[in-house]
Nucleic acid binder design. Structure first.
Lengths: 345, 345
DNA sequence: GTGAAAGCGCTAACAC
DNA sequence: GTGTTAGCGCTTTCAC
């Protein structure tokens, strides 16, 4: 006799009633429902997910495919996604496709088939991958990129970069460098770097500042990369007076480079990032803040709505706000000759 | 007609044969197996996990319960665990129990019941929680704490701390502070802080150095906390000449505090951490390195062995090595009067 | 409001 | 090496 039968027998009801009572479905009197739940608790009975998945076709599980777990952005995002779905009674199945190999295996095999009710994609799928995802026949949501047929959330990367660079321009800077990633060389992994680059160009153009490729450096979205990128910028014939870093981690690496060169921030060089990393408050970094908890919960909300009512069209894209947080790493451009004052902040 | 039946019918074989062919079980000729797999691929057929879980009782899924996702240690560990299990054909179900509420709900409900083949626990379960875990009837593995009936992996925290502090002692330091967590005040969340504290005491005692409670500060295992802890240490009447931080992040926060006070490292104060965080290389932090990838794969290995052969006793605890990585933040104690030389490293 | 019974899609005896 | 068949533990018609 199985657990569900035990419960049913002990209460003198049918398994159908127990099933209804446990799953919260109507058709059971409150009294019976209460007794069933109480006994289930005592008997340590929990309906088997496999069995109900088999019977209903719903797994109550959400898949998340991510290129990284241990990076700031992804860790925070996964964390936010998890809490929203957990609150709604869904479990999270995590797929980390960190290597090219793992990635192509994932999209070829699609191990999530019949295994999840919806999928969250934290990487930028190419056309083939997107096509594969569409064959799943479940809601798919992407973060940071909009594609036909997928739910998506994200910030306006172009606008965010524009505001960041505009902030520097407002302070009188005209020689403004950018630390980002890719720049046409690396295969397209994310859209953020591209859009942020566009925003940087837009802001410069609006202020009649010429674009200078020497001022664009690859920081690989890591602190280390940011430091090295800044080293290269400082080695150039004409140094920038301000730097727009596409992420706070790169900005912090750049800060470190500047200080090691005996220059001061913002005295000699101003710097602004994007993210509002925990560390940014500590080091006084000016940044464009984004909220990953908000992003995670918007995403979850959109998916859950779609799951509850597959017919109703959910808005395909949700845009989240960013805001300029001015701290101590940005200041007016120097108008006098550049010395090398040490200023620790 | 279901997918498996379609495949069977199209090939003129039985569903049992298809099942055997797909799952890699013996009892099918290579020729038939190949044809089945080929057709399955073409027809986009993949056995339903729910159905096979129901039939076999095995879910091919591993649960991971963690208090954090977005923190360095946990992110890296989860990442390592994921890759080992993925390689073995298992999926990862992630449970983030960040709040007291979520935590007690998790242990009361035990949503992993019948849902995973094994469970990895990244928090320190109290006695009740451990008891609850034992009722699951599946292999349970913990990281960093050894408990009756659980598989476990971890470093020797006591020894690691001893070596770290001994390194400082060898450099002539006798006034050695510790930045850690808890110190008897906070409810016991992890064993590491306690064990590392013991190691600190051991090393001091062995060198005939008196323990001084003023030199122990809570850094909450964050950079920010480390900075604040160091601020307090520097405000004391008699400053330490060296600091043992129980994590690199706290050490880096402490470094920052020291530099902001205009003191130099290691000129005025030496500092050592534990972890070998990516950032540590950048800032030249001396540390006790541990390998989270190794930890994750040992853990996965132990669980997989247990899963393959439940009878055979796997060694209940695996201890992983740590090693002293000497960089630039530790040096001989000053023998002359303390000035305040600026030295940026 | 409740029960009986037919599946959901697979696996594992057991036959051959 | 392959087929037949009885479940695995639920959900969900359809009766009542």
């Amino acid at each position: 006799m199985t657990k569900i039968q035990e419960v049913a027998a002990a209460l003198g009801v049918s398994v159908a009633t127990v099933s209804r009572a446990m799953s919260g479905k109507p058709g059971v009197s409150d009294a019976v429902r209460a007794r069933v739940r109480l006994l289930a608790d005592e008997l340590n009975y929990l309906p088997s997910r496999s069995a109900s998945a088999l019977a209903t076709g719903r797994t109550l599980t959400i898949g998340v495919v991510t290129p990284y777990i241990a990076r700031w952005y992804f860790g925070h995002l996964i964390s936010a996604i998890e809490s929203s779905f957990t609150a709604a009674g869904y479990d999270l199945l995590l797929y980390n496709v960190s290597s090219e190999n793992a990635r192509s295996r994932f999209f070829q095999t699609l191990p999530v088939r019949k295994r999840v009710d919806a999928l969250v994609v934290l990487l930028l799928p190419d056309d083939n991958e997107a096509a594969a995802l569409r064959t799943l026949g479940i809601p798919v949501a992407t973060v940071g990129s909009q594609q036909e047929g997928f739910i998506s959330v994200g910030i306006d990367d172009v606008r965010t970069a524009e505001v960041a660079v505009q902030h520097l321009i407002n302070l009188g800077h005209r020689r403004i460098a950018m630390i980002g990633e890719g720049f046409g060389v690396v295969p397209l992994q994310f859209v953020a770097p591209v859009d942020r680059q566009i925003g940087y160009y837009n802001a410069l153009r609006a202020a009649d500042i010429d674009v200078n490729p020497e001022l664009e450096q690859n920081g690989e979205f890591t602190m280390q990369g940011g430091e090295e990128a800044m080293n290269r910028l400082l080695a150039a014939r004409e140094r920038p007076t301000a730097v727009f870093a596409q992420s706070d981690e790169m900005a912090i690496g750049a800060l470190r480079s500047i200080r090691r060169h005996g220059l001061s921030v913002p005295g000699d060089i101003s710097i602004i990032g994007i993210d509002d990393h925990e560390m940014s408050g500590m080091v006084g970094l000016t940044t464009m803040a984004q909220s990953l908890p908000a992003m995670g919960s918007s995403l979850a909300q959109a998916i859950l709505e779609h799951l509850e009512n597959p017919a109703a069209e959910v808005s395909p894209h949700t845009e989240l706000p960013t805001r300029l947080v001015v701290r101590e790493t940005t200041g007016s451009v120097r108008t006098f000759a550049t010395g090398s004052l040490q200023e620790d902040s």
